[in-house]
């Protein structure tokens, strides 16, 4: 090839294109961790769409849940704490023929990475962002997270959390997200549908997954959620209505909604960035050859 581009995302006729599957690396999560359900749901969702594994990139930050890319057979980028989304956006803009999935935890996404989370949503870049929200810092052995509930005692808050938790669903709505959902890792099939529909969505799809930490969070357990969750789709919620989406987003207590809160149809960043309308960047010519006249402005 004459320049730096490489044919990407092209089907090769006559060869089988393996679908995503488990990799040869076994998860190192604690037995019973909610994240097992999430990796299973992501695998199911990607399979459902029939995407070959080499056209999928899973990008994560740092934390227990951010190890997820290692456990599937797609491309992956296990980046640094809080920066999964900008890395994922860069990959997506380099080659928007790829399916890009961001994964990570609540600390990664709503603490150290909160700024990127907000901006990725207002851009409506086409990514699916799956957060494994366990309301605690697990890998660092049990400190408070941005979603830890008021009063929760942790290693860093022995007298209880005194900050109001971030509501990721409300934050997403406020940031202009066009697909806002909450899943529960105790209901893998339902979660896989939310992720699959996110992958099909025109733009940024956010799926916050209540994914209990069985080691460090003794409050927000599987039982805690099983007793409280109900499905939005079976409760008459209209996900195109932003007002009722906000009302549902604010529900957190005896009843916790899961499912699709909100969905809107808006052009993606990639559709609006004129350079990308010429095709994936990685397949466009590079260099100044043919652009010699650019020097004329310096005369």
């Amino acid at each position: 090839m004459a320049d730096s581009t490489v044919a990407a995302s092209k089907s090769i006729v006559g060869t089988s294109l393996p679908l995503i599957t488990k990799s040869d690396t076994k998860p190192t999560w604690c037995p019973g961790c909610g994240d097992y359900g999430v990796v299973a749901a992501v695998e199911m969702a990607v399979k459902k769409l029939g995407l070959p594994s080499h056209d999928v990139v899973i990008v994560s930050g740092i934390g227990c849940s951010s190890n997820l890319p290692h456990f599937l057979s797609s491309y992956g980028f296990h980046s640094i704490h809080g920066r999964a989304l900008p890395v994922a956006e860069g990959i997506r803009w380099a080659n928007h023929g790829l399916t890009v999935i961001g994964t990570g935890g609540d600390g990664d996404g709503f603490g150290i990475g909160a700024g990127h989370f907000v901006h990725a949503m207002r851009r409506n870049v086409k990514l699916t962002y799956v957060t494994m929200d366990n309301q605690i810092y697990g890998l660092t052995t049990g400190q408070a997270s941005p979603t830890s509930m008021m009063g929760q005692k942790t290693k860093s808050t022995p007298r209880g959390v005194i900050e109001n938790p971030i509501d990721p669903i409300a934050l997403a709505l406020a940031s202009g997200a066009t697909y806002v959902a909450r899943g529960f890792s105790g209901d893998v099939k339902h979660l896989a549908d939310l992720v699959a529909n996110g992958l099909r969505h025109r733009g940024f799809a956010f799926v916050d997954v209540m994914s209990p930490c069985v080691t460090y969070n003794k409050i927000n357990t599987f039982d805690f959620f099983r007793q409280r969750v109900y499905k939005l789709e079976s409760s008459g919620h209209d996900p195109t209505n932003i007002v009722t989406a906000w009302q549902r987003a604010l529900e957190w207590g005896e009843k916790i909604p899961i499912g699709l809160f909100y969905k809107a149809d808006r052009p993606t960043y990639e559709e609006l960035e004129e350079v990308l309308t010429q095709g994936p960047l990685a397949q466009q010519p590079a260099g100044l050859k043919g652009h010699e006249s650019v020097l004329d402005e310096f005369v």
């Binding site: 730096s4 581009t5 956006e89 860069g90 380099a94």
Partner: peptide
């Protein structure tokens, strides 16, 4: 870094 990983300079 993401863009570079994705295949462009």
């Amino acid at each position: 870094i993401g863009a570079s990983f994705g295949g462009v300079r």
